[in-house]
Design a protein around this nucleic acid. Sequence first.
RNA 1: GCCCAUAUGGCUCAGGGGUAGAGCACUUCCUUGGUAAGGAAGAGGUCGUGAGUUCAAGUCUCACUAUGGGCUCCA
Length: 611
Amino acid sequence: MIYKGTHLSENTIGYIDDQGNILDTQTAGENCSATPIEYDNSKESLEIIRHSTAHLMAQAITELYPNSQFFVGPVVDEGFYYDFRVDEQIGESDLKAIEKKMKELIKKKYKIEKYEISKSEAKDKFANDDLKLKVMERIDDDTLSIYKQGDFEDLCRGPHVPALRFLHNFKLTRVAGAYLGGDEKAEMLTRIYGIAFADKESLKAYLTMMEEAKKRDHRKLGAEMELFMFNEEAGAGLPFWMPKGAKLRYKLESILHKAHLTRGYEPVRGPEILKADLWRTSGHYACYGENMYLTTIDEQEYGIKPMNCLGHIQVFKQSPKSYRDLPLRYYEYGVVHRHEKSGVLHGLLRVREFTQDDAHIFCEPEQIAQEVLEVVEFVDSVMKLFGFEYTMEIATKPEKAIGEDAVWDMATQGLKDALEGNNLPYTIDEGGGAFYGPKIDIKITDAIGRKWQCGTIQVDFNLPQRFEVEYVAEDNTRKQPVMIHRAILGSFERFIGILTEHYAGEFPFFLAPTQVIFVPISDTFADYAYELKKALLLEGIDSEVYDKNDSLNKRIRNAEKQRVPYVVVVGEEEVTNRTVAIRDRRNKEQYNLTQDEFMVKLTKQLQEGKI
RNA sequence: GCCCAUAUGGCUCAGGGGUAGAGCACUUCCUUGGUAAGGAAGAGGUCGUGAGUUCAAGUCUCACUAUGGGCUCCA
């Protein structure tokens, strides 16, 4: 509906024009003919509300910390933030005081007013504020707008709500440091993040959702379920796998092994450290050296591998290859070490030692599209098995890169063709490629909405050239193959971290570290439970027997808390009839099966992990 | 790496300048129970590491280590 000519509602906080631009009421004036934006939780409304809340926060900070200077305060996906410089140290505990001051300011019922000045006037006005001058450097327009509420005014593009009375339901969520302009070498400013909604219920729902997400954080679940651990004395970013986690990982590895073999991949394995000269030849020493761990043996420099390519290349080169051998697909669960910055380490999602499900496909240039497509299908079947939503992104040539532009263009086009030819949606990450070639990244979202790169498919014309990799073509000439680097999970560490959050610890039967817990009603029936456990083990199914000297109720409770697919109670009745009493946690059912039916059911469920 | 915060028995957490507490877990004993915590007793920490202030430091200061939240998204 288009409203014309009148300022219809008390609740109008802005307008959308024909081009989809948001105009606030200050800009639109009294008689605006564009579509009004009502005060609610629509995307446009929230943008205005959050932007104004950021300004309100800035005003509060100014009152509490008079020497503060402000940089930028935009609306982002998850709320808003403001970057500023302040003399005092601001910590999480100060957020409450800032919130309180914001509420006080609202009570003063300020209107939010707008006026415009020329850029030169603005430069005079903010001559003493180097941050504002920096902001202005980034703006091309000659006319700048200033928004004013009470004594506080700020250079701002808008849009804003008409008055502070629209700002009630907000929460400051965290305080952080942020480099000015995102530049690592620049000064670090203080950043406060917040969130705001049109009504109290939405804010509450958002905060509740964040709480729920935290409950499925893989770091919390990993400790609780005894999957993995870290150790201060061993060092940061170096995960240890505990028995339960190692079982889970082993199951995932087994599924993937079969999936590779049936798709024509062959297993290989390279050494953990290789001479530095090899890394010089590959370009890693120059382009990736700052992330590599180097060591010296017998006065000879070595590098611990951060990638597995070199090993696979050496295996390929060991014997002459024919065009008939191509495409040749080598895969390895390759352990790599990378010196990630200490501040970016994050549970299993970013570590310094991890294992990639890595493969290199050596093929002829004409085979690229087909091979990439097959990898994409492989990725899709793995993601489907676990029910993951994922996005694909083509990353192009970065600043630090080897190889000629023409070669880059050709490889990049090959990736696009493979996706477009099959109507697979993708986005472009300009300059996000590896130094040796463009790539397709597969990204999965974690429990709290952060996106992580998992799988990757990278076309590489450069390494075959650098290492003089060759095959004999049909016409008996020597040609250079193309290398496709690819990983489906990315790394077992990251993938298992995300899997844990995805399932909230309740892994599907074929992955669960413990698949069944037996609870014998009393000691007398424990033998039967151990007999069943052994039978399951022979089928590759892991189980535990809870026969500790605790009450039956307590053992059932403890078993249920383990997030295992099945808890099986056995007592006199079961022993006599050779049956089991199943508590199906996932389906919230209880039922009895004969021992045979039980075995058939479970072995059948194991098959669900096949791809 | 940089900014802010945190660091107490296996886990979750309380305490707070005068030499440490709780619950769960653990050990032993009683109990042998039919579907989410039976009972009793016991063991376990010198308060992340190092240095400093102090008559006295988990408790204050500094450094280090580890962990957590951030560090593209343009007034």
